[in-house]
């Protein structure tokens, strides 16, 4: 059982959702985006790209909070996220799930 400090206004916070785009053929398979995704939303794809690397694939699209960390750690300009038009409704945020 994990305990989290929950902000008092947690149920009013709108957590943004992100959509991850992957430019597969730019990827060289370093895996940094996969390792450092705070939501573990990515994993190596079973497929090879043109250069013979395994690019990442989004396994949990609903988990992406559009933090852009995959985008900024990627040395290859191969992955980025954009804000999803949808946002989680108050009371349905990830933080609440964890309680």
């Amino acid at each position: 059982m994990e305990f989290w400090r929950v902000p008092l206004d947690a149920d009013t916070i709108q957590v943004s959702l992100g959509i991850v785009h992957i430019l597969e053929d730019r990827c060289k398979g370093c895996g940094y985006c996969i390792e450092y995704c705070p939501k573990q939303a990515l994993e190596f794809s079973a497929n090879f790209n043109q250069k013979g690397y395994h690019p990442p694939v989004v396994i949990k699209p609903e988990e992406c909070v559009n933090c852009h960390y995959c985008e900024i750690i990627c040395p290859e300009f191969a992955i980025f996220s954009v804000e999803s038009p949808q946002t989680t409704k108050p009371g349905q945020s990830e933080t609440n799930h964890a309680i």
Binding site: D25, R26, K28, G29, C30, I73, P75, E76, F77
Partner: peptide, 14 residues
């Protein structure tokens, strides 16, 4: 000119 010449895992790109 992309992909660049930096090796997989190299941090220069970052």
């Amino acid at each position: 000119r992309i992909p660049h010449i930096w090796c997989p895992g190299c941090g220069i790109g970052t």
